[in-house]
Amino acid sequence: MRNNDFTRTALAAFAPVVWGSTYVVTTELLPAGHPLFAGLLRSLPAGLIALAFTRTLPQGRWWGRAAALGVLNIGLFFPFLFIAAERLPGGVAATLGAAQPLVVALLAVGVLKESPSAWRFAWGVVGVIGVGLVVLGPAAGFDLVGVLAGLGGAATMALGVTLTKKWGRPKEASPTAFAGWQLTAGGLFLVPVTFLFEGAPPVIGLGAVIGYLWLGGIGGLLAYVLWFRAIGTLPVTSVSMLGLLSPMVAAVLGVAVLGQTLDPVQLTGFALALAAIVAAQRPAPVLAKGVLQ
């Protein structure tokens, strides 16, 4: 991997590392029963700040594209994420989310017209197995709504990431502006949905304020600026594999913050997931009679 690619990959990895804190923040700081409100506060304020800072609005067809990407990457993904986090043990939600690279690998063939990559798909399977070993335990529960939300989040984010790669970023928009368009579009989508399904906002204490500021500022605006920049410069399947860092960080925070422990099976899962992430950043090996794509 060249130095420039390594730097881009490291910056891209910041996003899923921060997103790994979502499970702890949601369960420990945010008011329960308001996943849509959490998604709204994570997106709209950050998006408006980005628009005010960059003073750049979409032009022409990019109004529609920004709206579509905002709904997929933010407006639908955030509620699915928080619903799964509330209704499922963090491990189950994380494992469902880890399926996203597999969906991206399939969409890359259909949407981006890339050649099927057995190499990346195989490592995607290894990554899901590794994450499952890390975060699933005998007490794992399978609430139907939570499972559907977890799968829905993986699917919408995968499609959003793939279309982001397909359409690119207009040259007049900086990464901050591009992230701001999507965060704002996703947030505006969530405004009527939130008040229709959840009614009045919950009472917010100091802990919740800190949680929302973290998720919106660091986990929202900063993380998405780096994430969308990486999608534009790196292979989309490689970037999507970095998402496996999120459940791994969640597991580490469970140890550090919640007093949980990791057994040998979980440590084996860590090794498998890390191997999958690293392998997906490298080109497929060339074989004697062709390329293992």
Rank of each mutant, 00 (worst) to 15 (best):
Lys165Met: 04
Lys165Gln: 10
Gly168Val: 13
Gly168Met: 04
Gly168Ile: 11
Gly168Ser: 11
Gly168Glu: 09
Arg169Asp: 10
Pro170Val: 12
Pro170Leu: 10
Pro170Thr: 11
Glu172Cys: 12
Glu172Gly: 15
Ala173Asn: 03
Ala173Cys: 06
Ser174Pro: 10
Thr176Glu: 12
Ala177Asn: 01
Phe178Met: 13
Phe178Ala: 12
Ala179Gly: 13
Ala179Asn: 14
Gly180Ile: 13
Gly180Lys: 14
Gly180Val: 13
Gly180Ser: 14
Trp181Cys: 10
Trp181Pro: 11
Trp181Phe: 15
Leu183Glu: 02
Thr184Phe: 07
Gly187Ser: 04
Gly187Cys: 00
Leu188Glu: 00
Phe189Ala: 07
Phe189Glu: 04
Phe189Pro: 02
Leu190Gly: 01
Val191Pro: 06
Val191Trp: 07
Val191Asn: 05
Pro192Tyr: 08
Pro192Cys: 06
Pro192Asp: 04
Thr194Ser: 10
Thr194Glu: 05
Phe195Arg: 14
Leu196Pro: 11
Leu196Ser: 14
Phe197Asn: 12
Gly199Tyr: 12
Val203Asp: 14
Val203Asn: 14
Ile204Trp: 11
Ile204Cys: 11
Ile204His: 07
Gly207Lys: 13
Ile210Ser: 12
Ile210Gln: 06
Gly211Lys: 02
Gly211Ser: 06
Gly211Tyr: 07
Tyr212Asn: 04
Leu213Met: 12
Trp214Cys: 08
Gly217Glu: 10
Ile218His: 05
Ile218Asp: 01
Ile218Phe: 13
Gly219Asn: 08
Gly219Glu: 08
Leu221Asn: 10
Leu221Val: 14
Leu222Gly: 04
Leu222Lys: 04
Ala223Ile: 01
Val225Thr: 14
Leu226Phe: 11
Phe228Tyr: 15
Phe228Val: 08
Phe228Glu: 09
Phe228Cys: 10
Arg229Ser: 14
Arg229Leu: 13
Ala230Ser: 15
Ala230Tyr: 07
Ala230Gln: 08
Ile231Trp: 05
Thr233Asp: 15
Leu234Ser: 03
Leu234Phe: 07
Pro235Gly: 00
Val236Gln: 02
Ser238Val: 08
Ser238Pro: 08
Ser238His: 08
Ser240Met: 07
Met241Tyr: 06
Leu242His: 03
Leu242Cys: 02
Gly243Ile: 02
Gly243Arg: 01
Leu244Ile: 02
Leu245Ser: 05
Leu245Asp: 01
Met248Gln: 05
Val249Ile: 13
Val249Tyr: 05
Val249Trp: 02
Ala250Gln: 03
Ala251Trp: 02
Val252His: 04
Val255Lys: 05
Ala256Gly: 02
Ala256Met: 14
Ala256Cys: 08
Val257Met: 09
Leu258Gln: 09
Leu258Thr: 01
Gly259Glu: 02
Gln260Phe: 00
Thr261Lys: 01
Thr261Asn: 06
Leu262Trp: 01
Asp263Arg: 05
Asp263Lys: 09
Asp263Asn: 15
Asp263Met: 03
Val265Gln: 09
Thr268Phe: 13
Thr268Ile: 09
Phe270Ser: 03
Phe270Asn: 00
Ala271Leu: 14
Leu272Ala: 00
Leu272Tyr: 03
Ala273Cys: 02
Ala275Ile: 11
Ala275Tyr: 10
Ala275Phe: 13
Ala276Lys: 00
Ile277Trp: 00
Ile277Lys: 02
Ile277Tyr: 00
Val278Cys: 02
Gln281Ser: 09
Gln281Glu: 07
Gln281Asn: 11
Arg282Tyr: 13
Arg282Cys: 10
